[in-house]
Design a protein around this nucleic acid. Structure first.
Lengths: 193, 193
DNA sequence: ATGATTAGAATGAACATTCGATCTAATGGA
DNA sequence: TCCATTAGATCGAATGTTCATTCTAATCAT
């Protein structure tokens, strides 16, 4: 997930992600990050300019990772529906495989802690732009009702997010057949009769 | 929203809600709450045992308020679909009328800051239980596909939450006709062909 | 006059950040 | 080959601030 960073940075980012999800941001002090990552506070400040900076790097790295994951295996020649199913199925798999990254994005993508610039970049480096284009295509082919693609993508995403959240809280099953039904529900919500 | 509390408690809760949404929790100090609510710190501690306690009272009060709001105007004799539309339309209206309450619940319902007990109570005092019963009914009448009602309710809720979020960030329109289309999309996602 | 409330000072802990010292490893000159 | 020099990496104690909470003495309302 943090391949483009050096060893020290990786240790800090991984530790911070884990601590923030386990314990909440305010309970995650720099000294705790230092202890758990086995990097001294001084050295952390050698590689990151502030605590905020760590959080923002985390955010950017995860957004990019998620973007690549969701748009994986889109084959040339696949129809709109195939790509739709592939993308959102990828998203569910991603969320189950990297629940900490999922929860981090969930908790912080609307937080003032994340710089506006990071959020703007996220639109391009993440899956937002490609998914909106896909929904646009679906409208063009009369498969979807006429609604703003941006709104529709957000709604589908919200459905999946809450399904995954419910699962992570042990409140519902989320196996292969469930995932299929969930993605189908997303399709049906905008499919033309 | 805080009808069951006394004047002092109301002032504190209203102020805290506003500050937390405007500025983030960590930037909302007790002294700031005291200054803006015009209640001295000493007196705040007379009515609340800690900062955590304020947050948890806020949470419980808003959950209950939202629960009553969403299930408002369910008329005897209304069919499942009418109640479905009424409930989620109420939810959208609620979110637009009380965006701070909406954002608070969004940010804190998964946070470790909220006691587990508060979360458990929320299930009964909020709209979760009645909505699951409604979805159950829809399944019984063969209107909905067979999926866990809990999962379906969460997914519908997620759709609406993200639609409202997108609107609050000025990213999409959310007027009366849009609300209708959004609620229809939620219905269609689980409607039997 | 009794209980509620206020202003705000005092307390003590927690925390982000800084800084000077020490370590490491690579390079260069003899 | 062997030591000297250097640049950067790493350390962790020290700094200064912020903040939740407590306390005190004064004021207000009934």
């Amino acid at each position: 997930m943090f391949g483009r960073y050096n060893k020290v940075q990786q240790a800090v980012l991984e530790t911070t992600l884990r601590l923030i999800i386990d314990k909440e941001l305010q309970a995650t002090s720099m000294s705790l990050i230092a202890k758990e990552s086995k990097v001294s506070t001084g050295n952390i400040y050698h590689y990151f300019s502030s605590k905020e900076d760590i959080i923002n790097e985390l955010y950017k790295a995860i957004v990019q990772f998620n973007g690549e994951y969701v748009t994986k295996n889109w084959h040339e020649g696949d129809g709109v529906k195939e790509r739709f199913e592939r993308a959102w199925t990828n998203f569910i798999k991603l969320s189950l495989a990297y629940p900490q990254g999922f929860q981090f994005i969930e908790q912080y993508s609307f937080s003032p802690y994340i710089y506006e610039q990071s959020k703007l970049d996220a639109y391009e480096t993440g899956w937002c732009a490609p998914m909106e284009a896909l929904y646009e295509e679906a409208i063009g082919q009369k498969m979807f009702v006429e609604l703003e693609p941006r709104l529709m993508v957000q709604m589908s995403y919200g459905s999946l997010v809450y399904a995954v959240k419910a699962h992570l809280q042990n409140r519902v099953e989320l196996d292969e057949p469930h995932a299929k039904q969930i993605v189908a529900a997303c399709w049906n919500s905008f499919a033309k009769a």
